Simulated scan of single mutants.
Amino acid sequence: MVMYLLVIVGLTLAWRDPVLRQYMEPAALARTGQSLLAMPLGPLMVLAGYVLAVVLAMPVAVLITVGALVFGPWPGIAYTLVGMVSGAIVTYGIGLYSGAQLVDRWSTQGRIHALALALKRRGLWAIIVIRAVPVAPFVVVNMTAGAFRVRFRDYVLGSFIGLAPGTIMISLFMDRLTAALAEPDATTYGLLAAVVMLFGGVLWWFKRLMARGQASH
């Protein structure tokens, strides 16, 4: 959450700068996205960029925000989800072949083992929850799941399901935020407020669902 707030503050400051604003205009960002996708193997290059970003431990909020700004909300959602899950699979493989001992060196208090134990005990449900409400950096969860041999099917499906709500909501929020900044009027601010309220409602519903799932386990 803190990281995402920093991203929003950074984007707002960039928007107010006359020099940077020309690169932040929705039309300019859309042209960048169209140019990328029009290149030979453009979509594959975009997905490869997401995989590289995951390997380099770029925060999920940044990946989603960039996808929404450059490709628009709905294409951005598709590319971001597929790209992040692809990166999750690659880093799962890295953890699988690096071994649990190497991965556990990242933790000084056994937190990696605790995370792995939760993933293996609760399987699909645990992965969905950890993706939706991250308790550790994205790449750390990925490599830990691989190193401790979390079931691959649960890992991929849980990653997709857990990442989808946040990706959709953040993408819609960024779309309405850029619209409000570009054309500040009652309509754009009203739609932005509606998205924020929807975001809050989804978060409240997911917390209740998570509590029920924990109780059932």
Rank of each mutant, 00 (worst) to 15 (best):
N142Q: 12
A27R: 13
G72F: 07
M84E: 04
R208S: 05
I170V: 14
G200C: 14
L52N: 06
I8E: 05
A68L: 13
A193W: 09
L44H: 08
M1C: 12
W15S: 03
A179T: 09
T80H: 01
W125H: 14
V103E: 03
A61L: 04
L198N: 12
I89E: 08
I89F: 03
L52I: 10
M210T: 12
L203C: 11
V135D: 13
V9S: 12
S216P: 06
V150E: 01
T108Y: 07
T91F: 07
I112F: 02
T65W: 07
G83P: 00
S86T: 03
F148G: 00
A179H: 12
V66Y: 09
A186S: 14
L198E: 05
D175R: 03
V66E: 07
F71E: 01
A28S: 12
V55K: 04
F173S: 03
L209H: 14
L117A: 15
R122T: 10
V150W: 00
L63H: 04
M58I: 15
P75W: 07
L181N: 05
V66L: 15
W74Y: 12
G201C: 13
D104I: 10
L124G: 06
R208C: 03
Q22S: 09
T91I: 02
A61T: 06
T12Q: 11
L119V: 05
L124F: 13
A136G: 13
V60M: 12
R153F: 06
A145C: 08
I127G: 01
R31W: 05
F160R: 14
L203G: 09
P184D: 08
T80L: 03
Y23C: 01
V139N: 10
A48R: 01
M174F: 11
A179G: 02
L192S: 02
R149Q: 14
S216H: 15
L41Y: 06
V19L: 15
G67M: 07
V196M: 09
I94R: 05
P40E: 03
L102W: 14
V156F: 04
V82F: 11
F138H: 13
I168D: 00
L209R: 14
Y189P: 04
T167M: 11
H113A: 08
L36E: 01
L191Q: 10
Y97V: 15
L172D: 00
M143Q: 07
P40M: 06
T187A: 10
P73N: 09
A100G: 11
G162K: 03
L172T: 00
I170P: 00
R176F: 04
Y189R: 12
A118S: 15
M210K: 15
V139Q: 10
A61Y: 05
A118D: 13
M3Y: 09
Y92H: 05
L119M: 13
A53Q: 10
T80R: 00
G83Y: 00
A27V: 11
V135M: 14
V103P: 01
M84C: 09
L41W: 11
L63F: 01
W205R: 14
A147F: 03
A14K: 12
F199M: 14
M174T: 07
Y189Q: 14
S159V: 04
Q34C: 06
F199H: 13
G110T: 06
L11I: 12
G158Y: 00
A180I: 11
A116I: 06
V196G: 04
A194E: 03
G162W: 02
A100R: 13
V103D: 01
L163M: 15
D17S: 15
L81M: 06
L81N: 02
V141H: 03
I94C: 08
V55W: 05
